[in-house]
Computed example of a mutant assay.
Amino acid sequence: MKGKEWYQADDVAQEYDDKRFSDGGRHIDRRERQAVLEALSPVDGKNVLEIACGTGRFTVMLAERGAEIVGLDISGPMLVQGRDKASEAGVGDAVEFMRGDAGRLPFPDDHFDAVFAMRFFHLADPPVKFLTEMARVSKDVVFFDTFNRFSSRSVYNWLLPMGSRLYARFEVEQLLDGAGLSLADEAHDFVLPYGLYREIPNEIAGHLREMDTALRGSLVGEKLASVSYWTAQV
Rank of each mutant, 00 (worst) to 15 (best):
N148H: 12
A205C: 06
P161Y: 10
L159H: 11
V137C: 03
F147A: 04
D140Y: 01
S154I: 00
A214R: 09
L166H: 04
A187D: 13
L175M: 15
L159A: 15
F147P: 00
L192I: 15
E186V: 13
G163H: 08
I200G: 07
H207Y: 11
P161D: 13
E186G: 07
A184D: 10
Y156W: 13
V172C: 06
A135Q: 03
M162N: 12
F150L: 09
F170S: 14
R136N: 05
A168G: 15
S164W: 10
D145P: 01
S152C: 03
S138Q: 08
L175Q: 09
P127W: 05
D177I: 01
A205R: 03
N202T: 07
G163M: 10
G163S: 08
E210R: 12
P201N: 10
L192K: 00
E186H: 07
T146H: 08
P127D: 08
R198N: 07
E203K: 10
L159R: 14
G180N: 10
V191M: 06
Y167M: 09
E186N: 06
A184Q: 09
R149Y: 09
T213I: 11
P126A: 10
F150H: 07
V155N: 02
L183H: 07
L131V: 11
G195E: 06
G206I: 04
E199H: 03
S138F: 00
I204M: 11
A214D: 13
T146N: 08
A179W: 07
F190G: 02
F143L: 10
G195N: 09
A205L: 06
D185V: 00
I204D: 11
R169L: 12
L208T: 05
R149P: 00
A179H: 06
D177Y: 01
L183I: 06
P201R: 11
F150T: 01
L166G: 06
N202E: 14
I200P: 02
L208E: 03
F144S: 09
Y167V: 00
T132S: 15
L181P: 05
V128C: 02
A214E: 14
G180C: 10
